[in-house]
């Protein structure tokens, strides 16, 4: 009866498109990781674990790209969650009249194209003419004027800063919605019992906000591991290779025609993220009524 009214063919088009263009390349990639596939020859030979040896031996910087990706992911998770939480708390209870307007403005960068944001910040962070250094020089803090995107020591931190600027509104909005699910009575009861505002944050807000904090951490992690646009536009992986991440390296391999190594690198990330998402999605879909 159910199959008659809710026929399976409704799902086939979506399932087919998704399988062919998203899932299939991932699994084919695993197979091609063990070959010397490249753009110069039509022959594809089995080379065993050679590509993985190149990636993990540390001889060609790939381990640095992986570490950069992890560093970027972890740092942006921490920054966006902390700032996003602060802003969510501020907008949910600290300000009354303009909360809606503030939210609209702070969320705005999320919908802007990364490419546009990157170009704007390349100008703002320009060491000679950029407005940020101009500002520091104007107020006499010359020592703070840096080569934001050209100094190898801080280029990655600058990218993280710009990425946080762009993404924190997203995290704030999710946490804000999480805060709204906490019943007001809890706070009133705690206040009668004499709990300080810090106690209320520590013992009511944070524990009850944990599900939302978990969600934003997962979202930030998935984003961070796949980051490409913002790095590509701001530094292109430079200076040197100091800001290269997995997906800028993948693009590099693609341009150079070294498909074997590139697909192996992609596959490492594919397997890692598929395993993570298996557990996340299982949690997410376990209780369909709530999810």
């Amino acid at each position: 009866m159910k199959n008659k009214n809710y026929p399976f063919y409704f799902t086939i088009a979506a399932l087919a498109l998704y399988s062919v263009f998203v899932v299939l390349p991932g699994f084919m990639g695993i197979a091609y990781s063990f070959t010397d596939w490249n753009s110069y020859s039509t022959e594809v030979n089995f080379v065993g674990l050679d590509n993985f040896r190149i990636i993990f031996s540390g001889a060609e910087n790939y381990t640095d790209y992986i570490l950069n990706t992890l560093f970027f992911s972890i740092t942006t998770i921490v920054l966006k969650t902390l700032i996003g939480l602060g802003l969510a708390l501020l907008l949910s209870s600290g300000v009354r009249r303009f909360a809606h307007l503030y939210r609209t403005i702070i969320y705005l960068p999320v919908v802007l194209p990364t490419i546009a944001v990157g170009l704007i910040f390349r100008s703002i962070l320009n060491p000679r003419t950029g407005i940020l250094n101009e500002f520091f020089r104007a107020v006499g803090l010359d020592s703070l004027a840096q080569g934001w995107l050209v100094n190898p020591d801080i280029a990655m931190l600058s990218i993280i800063g710009v990425d946080t600027w762009k993404g924190v509104g997203y995290i704030m909005v999710i946490l804000l919605a999480g805060l709204q699910t906490i019943p007001q009575e809890y706070y009133e009861a705690a206040q009668i019992d004499g709990a300080s505002s810090f106690d209320r944050l520590r013992f009511i807000t944070l524990p009850l906000l944990m599900p939302a904090i978990t969600v934003v951490t997962v979202l930030n992690l998935l984003y961070g591991l796949r980051v490409f646009d913002i790095v590509y536009v701001l530094t292109g992986g430079g200076p040197g290779y100091t800001t290269d991440v997995v997906f800028t390296a993948v693009f590099d391999e693609f341009s150079k025609g070294r498909y074997g190594v590139g697909t192996a690198l992609s596959s490492v990330l594919f397997i890692f993220m598929t395993v993570i998402s298996f557990f996340i999605v299982r949690r997410l879909t376990r209780n369909p009524v709530e999810a």
């Binding site: 998203v22 991932g26 998935l222 591991l225 590139g262 993220m273 998402s277 999605v281």
Partner: peptide
């Protein structure tokens, strides 16, 4: 699961 899957641009 596809929400998290990175694309393999080569294959």
């Amino acid at each position: 699961m596809g929400i998290a899957m990175p694309l393999n641009f080569f294959t």
